[in-house]
Design a binder for these strands. Sequence first.
DNA 1: ATTTTAATGTAAGAAAACATAACATGTTGT
DNA 2: ACAACATGTTATGTTTTCTTACATTAAAAT
Lengths: 134, 134
Amino acid sequence: MKWVKLMTNRVRRTMPLLPISIVMQLTELTARQIRYYEEHELINPARTEGNKRMFSLNDVDTLLEIKEYLDQGLNIAGIKKLYDTKEIPKNEKAEPKNLSDAELRKLLREELKHQARPFEKGGFRQSDLTRFFK
Amino acid sequence: MKWVKLMTNRVRRTMPLLPISIVMQLTELTARQIRYYEEHELINPARTEGNKRMFSLNDVDTLLEIKEYLDQGLNIAGIKKLYDTKEIPKNEKAEPKNLSDAELRKLLREELKHQARPFEKGGFRQSDLTRFFK
DNA sequence: ATTTTAATGTAAGAAAACATAACATGTTGT
DNA sequence: ACAACATGTTATGTTTTCTTACATTAAAAT
């Protein structure tokens, strides 16, 4: 059952949750910029069935990085080279990748349920999604 | 500076990030159900300028709770009574609430920056939003 | 000093996602 | 059988996001 931990860990950071409007607020980038960076393959946000971009927390991280790099004077090409050079997460390809989105979300919820949280100052919630984001 | 910790802690759980489509997936509730629960004041999702609902992680938690309670045979009225009875988080009102959304997001980003993360198996990110969700 | 190029701004038109409202349906309790 | 509750469904309008194309601005190259 070790892989479940690894899995949910990866899932919660890679699950596409955020629409572009929120990412704009979080990163203070314009939609144009975000799409431009995608065009140049610095990010690869998921798409809904209707073709709308959906971003993961990892995507947001990357965008914040890109912003910093640009501030530091790098250009897109340089940043891309940086990313291309980064060692590819080897574990990534070893993991069972053939899980549907639905299955992954179910996984998340399941672990939610089974990790009963004792109490909390302000109430007595039974479940808490936020535990999956660190 | 202690309140910043408290603040970001509260912020990351109450910041409206998720559109209803994602919440539907996360909770396996229909849009109709979610709106119905809001109508009966079990949740109170934020709204965009254009009136679209935006949900926080706390909202998702609450929805998962509601689902469980309904499964357990409670009805809306019962659940509402439960929530109304819950002690109101006293600290809530003591905290400086007069911060704009923009300021709160800035706060988040700032703390991101200053908490430089050493390294990571798969790369060398400089910032990481996910740290704000636990 | 022009001219390119890179990054971003802006506008138009179409489609997706979401809103409210009204009516329909299936369950449960009386 | 009826009433109330929870949810489904459909219609219609608005907001958000998409792609594409052209404009602008600043830096780099000529």
